[in-house]
């Protein structure tokens, strides 16, 4: 489920980081799930092991995953996603595109809101 887009201006370690966090929020990764080792993931995606290490280190600092020596790397029990300013700006930019696009298609604000509600329902509850 992890993949790398080399053309994106987002560094590869950040792509991995974001995908894992997204996976946790969507429930693809459950608490206690074991992640592939640095070596396994580096081979799976054909990327530099240092890149994988960097992604894992940052995820650990953000308390999304934990490494147990000799056993591997796991998703933590109670991950609380944090909002950071830069990501907030990114989301706002993405939303702007969607809203403009929707406007040109002739969608009403209400219809768009309904779509957002449906998406939240798919994610499993608004509090996530």
């Amino acid at each position: 489920m992890l993949h790398v887009d080399v053309k994106s201006s987002k560094p590869i370690y950040e792509q991995i980081k974001d995908q894992i966090k997204e996976g946790i929020i969507k429930g693809i990764f459950q608490p206690g799930d074991k992640l592939p080792s640095v070596r396994e993931l580096s081979t799976m995606l054909t990327i530099n092991p240092n890149t994988v290490s960097k992604a894992y280190q940052e995820l650990e600092r953000e308390k999304a995953i934990e490494t147990v020596r000799g056993r591997g790397t796991f998703i933590v029990e109670d991950y609380r996603p944090q909002l950071d300013q830069e990501r907030l700006q990114e989301i706002s930019d993405l939303l702007r595109k969607v809203v403009v696009e929707a406007h040109y298609l002739g969608l009403s604000k209400q219809q768009l809101e309904q779509m957002v509600d449906d998406l939240y329902a798919d994610l499993g509850g608004e509090d996530q």
């Binding site: 070596r39 580096s42 081979t43 054909t46 990327i47 092991p49 240092n50």
Partner: peptide, 14 residues
């Protein structure tokens, strides 16, 4: 190509 590169990556990692 992929096998060759993966071999390289494993050497770097291990």
């Amino acid at each position: 190509k992929r096998e060759v590169i993966n071999l390289l990556l494993q050497e770097v990692e291990s």
